[in-house]
Design a protein around this nucleic acid. Structure first.
Lengths: 129, 129
DNA sequence: CAGTATCCGTAACGATACTG
DNA sequence: CAGTATCGTTACGGATACTG
């Protein structure tokens, strides 16, 4: 088996990149229960800058995961909503959440144990003169 | 609903980060069919530097996803293998691959369409025609 | 063989000021 | 309201030389 990190035509990698992106996932989750306006997203997704919000929304729109609807009114109103494809992706994210909730305790325990052993090892070396 | 990107205690985010990491996924995939040595991984995972390989392996080990077995021989021999938890994560990754293979065509098509409209300047999707 | 240590460029991201 | 433009930082990752 030979794997390449640079296989950009690899479907899995593209989806992985999307899912690994913090803002993308948060937006998809936000839109899962219905359409939202730009400012709503900005307010409810804590810590996102207008730059990142716009950039992420554009990416999601380009991938066919969300729609962007401009209402020709003043002041402007723009709604974002999941497409069918976006809903499908959300299903995937839900699966991930389920796995995470099920296994996070194991991961946490492993980390504690690993860190404890690391500390012990270091102390031993220091005291072992 | 209020979502925060900085909820580090959020299980989903931790798993998402792990899955979004290129090298982590590649390593898990490589180890799915059995244990491998450091150099084997280095050779078969194209483009990975020793720095990133070690760093990623440590992270996976810390999270209890892989084991690191040092054989006390000369020259050194170190084997890496998936834990049960690691295999479980691999199952998740397989699910992602399946989704990706199923839907990548839709994504690709959406991108082509989006880019085409952008070029034409008809990128604005107006409500009510 | 299996790493570690170091240097370094870049690109991602945050903050903020501005605009149609 | 819904963005865009610009700047500055920083942290991530690549390359490589070195070591037990």
């Amino acid at each position: 088996m030979q794997v390449s990190a640079y296989a950009k035509d690899c479907p899995s990698r593209q989806i992985l990149d999307r899912i690994g992106d913090t803002w993308s996932v948060l937006i998809v989750v936000m839109l899962a229960d219905g359409a939202h306006r730009y400012t709503e997203l900005a307010k409810r997704i804590q810590g996102v800058s207008p730059k990142m919000l716009t950039q992420t929304l554009r990416g999601l729109e380009r991938d066919g995961l969300i729609t962007r609807t401009v209402h020709p009114v003043v002041p402007p109103r723009v709604d974002y909503a999941l497409t069918e494809l976006g809903h499908s992706l959300y299903g995937l994210v839900e699966g991930l959440e389920k796995w995470a909730e099920t296994h996070i305790d194991d991961v946490q325990a492993a980390r504690v144990e690993y860190d404890a052993l690391r500390r012990k090892g270091r102390n031993r070396r220091l005291c072992g003169g």
